[in-house]
């Protein structure tokens, strides 16, 4: 049983050498393993900032609050320590790392997170299985990390990593955006496989309710103006679907 707590989190985006802007203005959120929390909000409300700040992205700086994973202070950990502690972020815009092959990258990541190098043969079998589960062509293993991948291919690979790394907390930032219905199904199945263990807490960031038909949330939070503006059960998503975010945009502004 894992408890992931975000308390009063404030963060700035670093724009230039001197320039910064406060985006997160006191975020409170608790996610237990086995739970799926949908974070929904208008564009620009700070959802990605929340995801990146928690993961330790260099372009964001935390100015207040805390993030705890089973009581451990995540903010004191380096980026890689956070990942090894069980935190995973599927990015809205996954990064291309030229020249580093996907297979080498995945093996390095799995080795780091599991604490020992997997047996080569067992790993390549595991990888093949996970790739085929996400309808990823085996040839991708030899390509550079996200290099020249389409938006949808990048998203599938983020979920591939989710499945291989088996985190305690998974933050999925708009994994659904830019996917057609077939791809959305494939990706959702991957998320559901990861969830099926009951050992992962999921923060599912999305702009649309569409993915919630495939990945069922236990809680829905409206994110506006850099904080959680309202929380509820799955029915809140239906309200948002019919009414939109207007009410919250005004509150947040």
């Amino acid at each position: 049983m894992t408890k992931f707590e975000i308390r009063g989190l404030r963060a700035d985006v670093l724009i230039g050498a001197e320039e910064r802007k406060e985006i997160l203005k006191g975020v409170d959120l608790t996610i237990n393993s086995g739970e799926t929390h949908a974070i929904m909000g208008p564009n620009g409300s700070g959802k990605s900032t929340l995801a990146y700040a928690v993961a330790g992205h260099p372009k964001y700086e935390i100015t207040g609050g805390e993030v705890l994973l089973d009581g451990e202070n995540v903010l004191e950990m380096s980026v890689d320590e956070r990942a090894r502690a069980g935190l995973f972020l599927a990015m809205q815009y996954p990064v291309e790392v030229p020249g580093v092959s996907m297979s080498n990258f995945l093996r390095s990541a799995v080795t780091a997170v599991r604490g020992e190098a997997p047996k080569l043969r067992a790993f390549s079998k595991e990888l093949q299985g996970a790739m085929s589960g996400l309808s990823i062509d085996p040839s991708f293993a030899g390509r550079g990390v996200n290099e020249g991948f389409s938006g949808g291919e990048k998203k599938r690979h983020e979920i591939l990593q989710l499945e291989l790394l088996k985190p305690k907390v998974a933050i999925l930032d708009e994994t659904d955006s830019g996917l057609d219905v077939d791809a959305l199904k494939v990706v959702s199945e991957g998320i559901n496989r990861a969830k099926a263990t009951g050992e992962v807490g999921v923060m599912l960031i999305t702009h649309y309710t569409r993915i919630l038909n495939y990945v069922k949330p236990d809680f829905v939070h409206v994110f506006a103006g850099g904080r959680v503006a309202e929380s509820g059960g799955p029915e809140l998503a239906d309200v948002l679907e019919s009414e939109g975010y207007e009410r919250f945009v005004k509150v947040g502004a």
Partner: peptide, 17 residues
């Protein structure tokens, strides 16, 4: 540093990244 961040966010230590 964004390349490094991506690799580290998958658990790969800074020097290996």
């Amino acid at each position: 540093d964004v390349h490094l961040f991506y690799l580290q966010s998958r658990g790969i230590p800074a020097d290996a990244a």
